[in-house]
Write a protein that binds this DNA or RNA. Structure first.
Lengths: 211, 211
DNA sequence: GGATAGCGGATAGTGATACTATCCAGTTAT
DNA sequence: ATAACTGGATAGTATCACTATCCGCTATCC
């Protein structure tokens, strides 16, 4: 497959394919001459993964690169890959962490996971993100919303067991790795879309019952 | 309160406060002279809301403007506000919707909500986002992940009942409106952070049990 | 075998976004 | 009086994710 065919088959414009090549998201094709190279289905597959992570998962190009580096690292154990995916999703950390209010929120976040018995890495970016959200809710005087946290935690714990089980059931490492990444990123997209739909249904149902 | 005090109290730089004023995110202060104006706690509160939506909720400035316009519209019924918040979160829609694969995914999305008996607006952006994610999972050969959809739907439905109940319990409209917005946007941040933590815990637990 | 379409690689340009800086004439505080 | 600050306007900057163009070379079709 030539680069133009790769572009056509994937629906990604040729300059953009070249850009991903330059950025190291897409491995170079097998060179068959000074200015000719051959691409195959693995490139096509990779390109589709890149687009899905960017478009659906809202990852940045830098985030995609991070994730793919981890995916391609055959040594990396599974849960490290998951951590990498989480870091890539997290993007650039907020600037104004560190005030006393944030510190308190951060401790609350740590307490929440500790109370559940969750064993997570002390510096997991999600812990900081949770603290960000808790601090924001408190600062805005919406702390009654924190009553939801238990429900969220229980639901996500139950779901995680299913998700991880689904991925582990696959057997071979390569497809587990891809499943982990897509499950994390695209699964999040599915979950948030469903949450919005559920909210819409529920709020319409409670404010104006069917008639 | 003068603009510089507003800046200091909120931790938002003065040029940025001016920028939000220009962009219409922050209402103008009460003018007390040709070049002097007075700001109060409502401005401070609004400024904090803006920062939370941008930093924690990952909304764009344009998205924040949309949400705030809806918040300030005293006429708008509650579930319309929710729809507006969802649209603002959704951001710019993807370009490549419309292919047969996407259409099929979109129908599947519609079927999922119909099977649950959810009554949602036919053109809800979340329906398109769900279709995006489903189409991407299929395209990447990860359709076994779609087995999670039921679990997600059930969990989000249960959570939505709690969330909406919490907001409705407040009584006065103004605080319900703010609760709706912050609950939607910041609640999403809390939920996704907890999901990542739950995943990390579960995947570590299943691959290397405590010892 | 000669035109021409396409190639890989390099470099530069574009448009959107979210600020950030500077300037100004006018006002307030010391 | 003078220094600091004000609201308002305009212009500049950094980053991101592409997009366009140019080059000398090659593959392919007639």
């Amino acid at each position: 497959m030539k680069i133009s065919e790769l572009s056509r088959h994937s629906g990604v414009s040729l300059p953009t394919v070249k850009y991903y090549l330059r950025e190291g998201l897409l491995p170079a094709g097998r060179s068959t001459g000074r200015n000719q190279a051959e691409y195959d289905v693995t490139h096509l597959r990779r390109l589709r993964l890149i687009r899905a992570l960017i478009d659906v998962g809202n990852l940045s190009v830098a985030g995609v690169r991070q994730v793919l580096l981890a995916v391609d690292d055959g040594e990396l154990p599974g849960h490290h890959l998951l951590g990498t995916a989480h870091e890539a999703i997290a993007g650039v950390p907020r600037a104004d962490r560190g005030g006393p209010a944030w510190q308190a929120a951060r401790e609350e976040a740590a307490r929440i996971v500790a109370d559940r018995g969750w064993r997570v890495h002390e510096h997991a970016p999600a812990l900081d993100q949770l603290a960000d959200a808790i601090a924001a809710l408190r600062e805005l005087g919406q702390q009654d919303m924190l009553a939801m946290v238990d429900g969220y935690a229980e639901a996500t714990e139950r779901l995680a067991v299913q998700e991880v089980g689904l991925v582990l059931a696959r057997g071979d490492r390569a497809s587990m790795v891809e499943g982990l990444v897509t499950g994390t990123v695209l699964g999040e997209a599915v979950l948030t879309a469903l949450r919005r739909l559920a909210q819409e249904h529920t709020s319409a149902g409670l404010t104006e019952p069917p008639g």
